[in-house]
Simulated assay, not measured.
Amino acid sequence: MEAPHPAVLVVSGHLTRDAVPRLCADLEDLLAGSPAATAVHCDLSGVVHPDLTTVEAIARLSLTARRTGAPGLRLHGTPPELRALLDLVGLGSVMEDVSAPHPPPTAPGTRTAGTSGPRPGSSGGP
């Protein structure tokens, strides 16, 4: 008996808000046609100019997959800009790109954001 294959959804181009319901419907059709699929692989390598609409589309696709019984999305080929947006809105750890893992987080003592010195306009002391 052959092992079930994942369902594969390819997302490309610049996504608009009007395209999101169609993408979700396409995913529902894909899953209805592949009832033995154990996962949904979402190929994002063709996405251009990702923005918050793209993030919304991915979140809604993940919800659609789960609603239809799949465990969610496994992202592939996520452009760096989109990966940064997913991290920014708190979905980076939930929506891992299995084809290009994130670098491990840095320890708190090695972070460089912020400042420890006085800021212009501040008194600089307590």
Rank of each mutant, 00 (worst) to 15 (best):
G121N: 09
L82S: 08
P71H: 02
D87T: 10
A25H: 14
L27P: 05
G90S: 09
L9T: 01
T53K: 06
T38A: 14
R74I: 00
D43W: 03
L15G: 04
D18S: 12
A39E: 12
T54Y: 06
D97Q: 08
G117R: 14
L44A: 13
P108N: 03
V8P: 01
S62I: 00
T16C: 04
L91S: 05
R22T: 15
A113E: 07
L30P: 01
G33T: 01
M95P: 02
A57Q: 03
I58M: 08
V40A: 04
L61T: 03
H102Y: 05
D29F: 00
G114E: 04
S93H: 11
G125Y: 12
G90A: 06
A36Y: 01
V89I: 14
S93N: 08
E2Y: 04
L86V: 05
S122H: 12
P103A: 14
D51L: 07
E96S: 11
H102D: 13
D97P: 06
H49E: 14
L23Y: 13
D51V: 02
H49I: 00
E96P: 00
L15M: 11
T110K: 01
G33D: 13
D87C: 04
R111D: 01
A65P: 08
R66F: 01
S93V: 11
P118W: 09
V40Q: 03
L23S: 07
V20E: 06
V48K: 13
L63W: 01
G124M: 07
A3M: 14
A37G: 03
L31E: 05
G121R: 10
T106H: 02
G109C: 00
H5D: 12
L61P: 02
T16K: 10
R119K: 12
P120F: 12
A84P: 00
D18W: 01
V20M: 06
R60F: 04
T78C: 15
L75Q: 03
